[in-house]
Design a binder for these strands. Structure first.
Lengths: 120, 120
DNA sequence: TACTATATATAGAGACGCGATATATTGAAA
DNA sequence: TTTCAATATATCGCGTCTCTATATATAGTA
């Protein structure tokens, strides 16, 4: 009999921070288009200040998500307003968000199994 | 009336990976002394292979935890055996583990509040 | 006029996990 | 007897990522 195959980690520990940031952003975009600055405010508000995005963190992530085709940004042209870029989820982004969310659920289950000794 | 003070994040997103690894190790040591190699095997087994420690990850973390006084390592001298270093939790480590575990619970709650839109 | 909030962008610094590599012993298989 | 795998610890360098700081620009308010 073969041993059960080892389960690959649902979320790569190496990229926990990146995945966390991406998932927070994508899930906020799931409720409708936002521009960058607005995303940071919304996430901060929704988490009662627990999750805060520095600008140097936020914009590179948005650029990367866009280059990966997970979100799409369009410049809004409004007079008497600083130009803003409105981001929205693509179909691929919506699918990716779904997978990431499931991955985080799985990660937490396994994590607390180990930490709280439920698997002993 | 003042707005409620923004809650600082329970677990720093920047150091999610580090905190995750530390907490997995400390919680395993809470059940008794282990040496490094044994820790990796135990955590891998307890998580059905989800959490795996590469050597280049494990040993630097152990050294750091020891230098911070959260764990203490003692060389075991046994003839006819490769030398092993047995680690155990210090009182400070036990306290730190408690805080980290609570922090992760809190992080988990807030994270899914945002991701699943419970705070909207 | 000056400051704050809005709004986006990037360069540089520091931290950290991982793969590769090194060293050493023991026991089992060929 | 030789070779291989498992046990056991350690470190270097690479790539990646977040943060701080800085730059730029506009609108509204004190």
């Amino acid at each position: 009999m073969n041993p059960p195959p080892a389960q690959p980690p649902s979320i790569d520990i190496q990229s926990l921070s990146r995945s966390c940031n991406q998932t927070l952003i994508l899930s906020t975009l799931a409720s409708g288009p936002h521009h960058g600055y607005q995303l940071a405010l919304e996430i901060e508000g929704r988490s009662s200040g627990a999750f805060r995005f520095q600008h140097g963190t936020l914009y590179p992530i948005l650029h990367k998500l866009e280059s990966q085709g997970l979100i799409r940004g369009d410049w809004l042209e409004e007079r008497s307003r600083r130009r803003r870029k409105s981001y929205r989820l693509t179909a691929a982004g919506r699918q990716y968000l779904k997978e990431q969310t499931a991955g985080w659920r799985d990660f937490f289950d396994r994590f607390f199994d180990v930490v709280e000794g439920r698997s002993r």
